[in-house]
Structure formats: C-alpha cells, structure tokens
C-alpha cells in the first residue's frame, strides 16, 4: 500500500516535534507538521497532539480557524484522527479546567480534575499499565497491560462507557483511550512510551 499522508496538526501548544520523530522512526515519510488547510485536506490521517492547559489549546485552535475545518474533515469526510493527551481531551464536550470551556464535542463527556485520595499524587505522572479492549485497532500489537507514559491532572469522563476503550488504575479508573468510529484519543503519550507507543502508532496507521 502507498504510504499514508499523515498530518500532525500544529496549533502552537503541541509537542509536535516529538510526535513527528516517533512516526518518522517507523518509516512514514509522507509526514508534515502543519496548520495549513490545504495540507490538512490532503491528509489520510490526522494527529492532534497537545501539551498544556485545555483553555489555551481551544483558544489556539480557534485563533487558527481550525475547528470548522476539523469538523468537516473528521465528521463529514470520516478521516481517522488520533488525539494525544490534551488533544484527546479536546474531543470532549467540555472541560472544567479553570472554568468551563467547550471542546470539539465529538465524544460526549466532560474533562474533569483527578480528585483522588491524598496518597495519590496529582498530576498522575509516570508509567502505568493500560487495560484495553482487544478489539480496538489501536492496541492490536500491544501486549496485555502494556506500560504507557501518563502526565496529566485532568481526565476524560465519557458519558457513554462504550467509548472508553482503555483505562488504567490510579485510585479510580482513569480513561486511557477513547474511540468513536474514526475518532481516536489517548490520554498517555505514545510518542514517549518507547516501544509500546511505537507499536500503537503502527497499529493506528496500519488500520487505515
């Protein structure tokens, strides 16, 4: 098969360079980091990275006029998209990080603060075992309970539990991955999860 055309959406708050490095390592050469509508329209798959605060991320998406474009590409044209960390949280209806802020509303639910027992430090930082639904195309290459790297204080509380395809234990069951049709999101950082993460990227692109 011809290599897929992959676009990492650059909206100013993502660690786009790290994500790009990991994907390049797997041998995908048709890869660009861009916020250019023409590039995004040509893509076969989209990656929505993100490091940072929810409000800042939404503000950046809006200021670059990306929301209508993404709605068109993802909802109407059904392009596969993978949100990473805050990029995954953006898929939600809204977030209560520093006030209520609306998200893309592609997967119903709210992004909420991790309210845990005092012995659980917040942010949730480090490598945690992820239990996943084996039917999810993201995890076809990963061993059961593989370790992934998390670094977040808020988590995606989905309205429909069927959309949660993976979770990890950290006092509560923390949503680790979501999927609804062509829309995928992971709370952890596959680009920073060594081989486990590289396998996930491979599975995502191979499922195209």
């Amino acid at each position: 098969m011809k290599q897929p055309n992959i676009v990492i959406i650059d909206y100013g708050v993502g660690n786009t360079y790290s994500v790009g490095n990991a994907i390049k390592f797997l041998g995908y050469k048709r890869l660009s980091i861009s916020d250019n509508p023409k590039e995004i329209e040509k893509a076969d798959a989209l990656i929505l990275p993100g490091v940072g605060a929810f409000e800042e991320a939404v503000k950046n998406l809006k200021s670059r006029n990306l929301i209508p474009l993404l709605n068109e590409q993802v909802l109407n044209r059904q392009k596969p998209i993978l949100g990473i960390c805050v990029g995954m949280q953006l898929l939600a209806t809204d977030s209560n990080e520093k006030g209520i802020h609306p998200g893309l509303d592609w997967i119903k639910g709210r992004v909420e603060k991790l309210e845990l027992k005092p012995e659980f430090a917040v942010p949730h930082v480090g490598w945690n075992n992820v239990s996943f639904n084996e039917e999810c195309p993201l995890f076809t290459r990963n061993e059961a309970n593989a370790n992934f790297y998390f670094d977040h204080s808020y988590y995606f509380n989905c309205e429909n539990p069927d959309h949660v395809v993976a979770h990890c234990k950290y006092d509560i069951e923390v949503t680790a991955a979501v999927q609804k049709d062509n829309i995928f999101g992971v709370q952890f950082h596959p680009e920073k999860s060594q081989t486990s993460g590289l396998k996930l990227f491979r599975s995502f692109f191979n499922a195209l």
Binding site: V13, V51, G52, A53, E56, K98, P123, D151, H152, S153
Partner: peptide, 9 residues
C-alpha cells in the same frame, strides 16, 4: 508557565 502549558509541564 502552568497557565499556558498546564502544571504537569
């Protein structure tokens, strides 16, 4: 920095 990039950063 925490406001822009989140405190996890």
């Amino acid at each position: 920095a925490a406001d822009v990039f989140g405190n996890q950063c």
